[in-house]
Write a protein that binds this DNA or RNA. Structure first.
Length: 470
RNA sequence: CGGGCUGUAGCGCAGUUUGGUUAGCGCACUUGACUGGGGGUCAAGGGGUCGGAGGUUCAAAUCCUCUCAGCCCGACCA
C-alpha cells in the first residue's frame, strides 16, 4: 500500500523538497519581517556544532575572537569606493533613534571591514603588533530581495575573520591558509562535502578585495553553492583607515589585510548536499545527535535496556539520545528521526531483546542489522565512521559524475544544466563569462588543472568551473 | 514603475461564476480507549474579525468601490 511521501520528492520539485525539509525536520521558519528567519532548536544545534568545529580551527590558525558593534557610522562605509558601491543597495540604515532623527545615520553592519579597520589602525603601531589576527561571530544584515532560508536571508549569522599583515605575501598566505586549513578541512572532514577551492573572477570578487578565494559545493540538483570565502584586501582598507606600522628600520609602512567568512548558508549546503527523499542525512561528525536509541514498546525491560545503552554510548563518547515516547507510534518516531537525519538509529524492542539483540539502522543507506545488546555500543563508533566516509564518497561520486570537461562555451552551457562544466579560462575569458551570465551560468571559481588555487588567473592551464548557482 | 495572480482555522485548500440555514474538507491539535517491529485505529472534541474599510441588499466569503499584504512575469540593476 503506497503511502503519500513524507516530503515532496527531490526529482519532482527540488525547491519544494527543501521547503518541506525545513519544516518537517524542524530546522527553521520564516521570520515576521520578509527575508528573516527563525532558527529552531534542532537547526540551531547543528549550527552550534558548525560553530564549534570552525571556531576550533580558527583558533588553531592563530586568530582570536573579539566583538565589534552592530551599528556602524555611515561615513565609514563610504570611505572605500568599491566597498560602498557593492554594499549600498542592500544596506539597512537607521535614521531615527531615541525619538529623533540622527545627525549621522548609522548602518546595520553588512560586514565589518570598516569598523574593524578603524580599530586595527588604533591598535597597530609597530611591526611587533603584526600579524593581528581577529575573528568575530556575529549577525549581519544585507537587505536581499529574493530570499530563501539559510541560503540568502536579510539577516544571517556568520563568523568574519579580519587580519592585518606586514607584507602582501604574508596576507596572501594567510588567506590561503584559512581557505585550506579552516574551511576546506571543516567542509570535507566534518560536513563530508567535497568542496572545490579556487579563486573568483574579477566579476565575482568581493567589493573591495584584490583577490577572493572560495569553497564551492555541488548540491543534490547539480547547482553550485558558495560555502565560504577568503579575501585578500590588499591595502585598500589599510589605506583608507590608515592601518600602518613602523618597520624594523623605523619607516612607516601600510598594512595588508584579509577577511574571510562562513555563514548559516552552510546549513543550506548541508541540507541540499546530503538530503534525500526521506529527509536530512547529517554526517556523524557534525550531528548534534549521532545515535538515537528508540524504545519500540515499553515491555519486557526494553526501556531499561535502552536507557543503559544510551549511558554506554555516552560513556564511549557518542552523542546519543533516548526516545522512549510511548504516546507516539513507532513508525512516526522512526520517520521523524529519519527526517532529522540522525546517522544511526538503534531499535530496542521486546522481540529482539528476547534473543539478546537490538536492531541497528543506518540513515544513509537504510541498511538494518542485528547486534547483541552487550556488544553493540562498542561497534557504534565504527559504524559512525563508515557513515561519515560513505556520505563523503557518495557526494564525491555525484560531483564527479556531474562534472564535464568541455572546450567550448556552448558545451559549457549545456553541461551547466545538470552540473558543473570545466572549461579552459583562456577559452572562456571575461567575454565568455558575460555570455554565460545571460543564461544564469556563472564562473564559480578558477582552478589549476589539478584543482588547486592558482596564483593568478593568467597562469597557464587555469580552468574555469562554471555552473548555475544558488 | 508596468502587467497578471492570490488572500477563508497552525499548514494546504474547496466554496465566490448564479448572494440565502449554524462556512466546509485534508493534515495538524485536545481527550479517551485499544495499539505499538515503518507516518496506527476508533470515538468524542477545540479552533474562523472569510486580509482591511466602506457600500448595495431583507440577507454578503460571494456583488461594487477603495485599500493593504504576498507571489509570478517584465523593466531597472549587476
Amino acid at each position: 500500500m503506497a503511502k503519500a511521501p513524507v516530503l515532496t520528492p527531490q526529482a519532482d520539485d527540488f525547491p519544494r523538497w527543501y521547503q518541506d525539509v525545513l519544516a518537517k525536520a524542524e530546522l527553521a521558519d520564516n521570520g515576521p519581517v520578509r527575508g528573516t528567519m527563525v532558527i529552531r532548536p534542532y537547526g540551531y544545534s547543528l549550527w552550534e556544532r558548525m560553530q564549534a568545529e570552525v571556531d576550533a580551527r580558527i583558533k588553531d590558525a592563530g586568530a582570536e575572537n573579539a566583538y565589534f558593534p552592530l551599528f556602524i557610522p555611515e561615513s565609514y562605509l563610504t570611505r572605500e569606493a568599491e566597498h560602498v558601491e557593492g554594499f549600498s543597495p542592500e544596506l539597512a540604515v537607521v535614521t531615527h533613534a531615541g525619538g529623533k532623527e540622527l545627525e549621522e545615520p548609522v548602518v546595520v553592519r553588512p560586514t565589518s571591514e570598516t569598523v574593524i579597520g578603524e580599530f586595527m589602525a588604533k591598535w597597530i603601531q609597530s611591526h611587533r603588533d603584526l600579524p593581528l589576527l581577529l575573528n568575530q561571530w556575529a549577525n549581519v544584515v544585507r537587505w536581499e530581495l529574493r530570499t530563501r532560508i539559510f541560503l540568502r536571508t536579510s539577516e544571517f549569522l556568520w563568523q568574519e575573520g579580519h587580519t592585518a599583515h606586514a607584507t602582501q605575501a604574508d596576507a596572501a598566505a594567510y588567506a590561503v591558509q584559512i581557505l585550506h586549513d579552516v574551511y576546506r578541512d571543516f567542509m570535507v572532514d566534518v560536513l563530508a562535502m567535497p568542496v572545490l577551492i579556487g579563486r573568483k573572477t574579477r566579476q565575482e570578487r568581493f567589493a573591495g578585495a584584490i583577490n577572493t578565494l572560495a569553497c564551492e559545493a555541488m548540491m543534490g540538483d547539480g547547482k553550485a553553492l558558495q560555502m565560504g570565502t577568503s579575501h585578500e584586501l590588499g591595502q585598500n582598507f589599510a589605506k583608507v583607515f590608515d592601518i600602518a606600522y613602523q618597520d624594523a628600520e623605523g619607516t612607516q609602512q601600510t598594512c595588508w589585510t584579509t577577511s574571510w567568512g562562513v555563514s548559516t548558508r552552510m546549513m543550506g549546503g548541508l541540507i541540499m548536499c546530503h538530503g534525500d527523499d526521506a529527509g536530512l542525512r547529517i554526517p556523524p561528525r557534525l550531528a548534534s545527535t549521532q545515535v538515537v536509541v528508540l524504545v519500540i514498546k515499553d515491555a519486557d525491560g526494553a526501556a531499561e535496556a535502552a536507557g543503559r545503552l544510551v549511558d554506554e554510548l555516552r560513556a564511549a563518547g557518542v552523542r546519543a539520545k533516548l526516545d522512549a515516547r510511548t504516546d507516539t507510534s513507532f513508525g512516526r518516531r522512526a520517520t521523524d528521526w529519519e527526517l532529522k537525519g540522525v546517522p544511526v538509529r538503534i531499535e530496542v524492542g521486546p522481540r529482539d531483546l528476547a534473543n539478546g539483540e537490538v536492531t541497528v539502522v543506518r540513515r544513509d543507506t537504510g541498511e538494518k542489522s542485528q547486534a547483541t545488546v552487550d556488544g553493540v555500543a562498542a561497534t557504534i563508533p565504527g559504524v559512525l565512521d563508515a557513515v561519515q566516509a560513505d556520505l563523503l564518497g557518495a557526494a564525491t561520486r555525484r560531483r564527479d559524475e556531474r562534472t564535464a570537461e568541455v572546450t567550448t562555451i556552448d558545451e559549457a552551457r549545456e553541461a551547466a544544466q545538470v552540473g558543473f562544466a570545466r572549461i579552459p579560462w583562456a577559452t572562456l575569458g571575461e567575454q565568455g563569462e558575460a555570455v554565460l551570465a545571460q543564461d544564469a551560468i556563472t564562473v564559480r571559481c578558477l582552478q589549476t588543472p589539478d584543482g588547486q588555487v592558482p596564483a593568478s588567473e593568467d597562469e597557464p592551464g587555469v580552468v574555469a568551473v562554471v555552473a548555475r548557482a544558488y
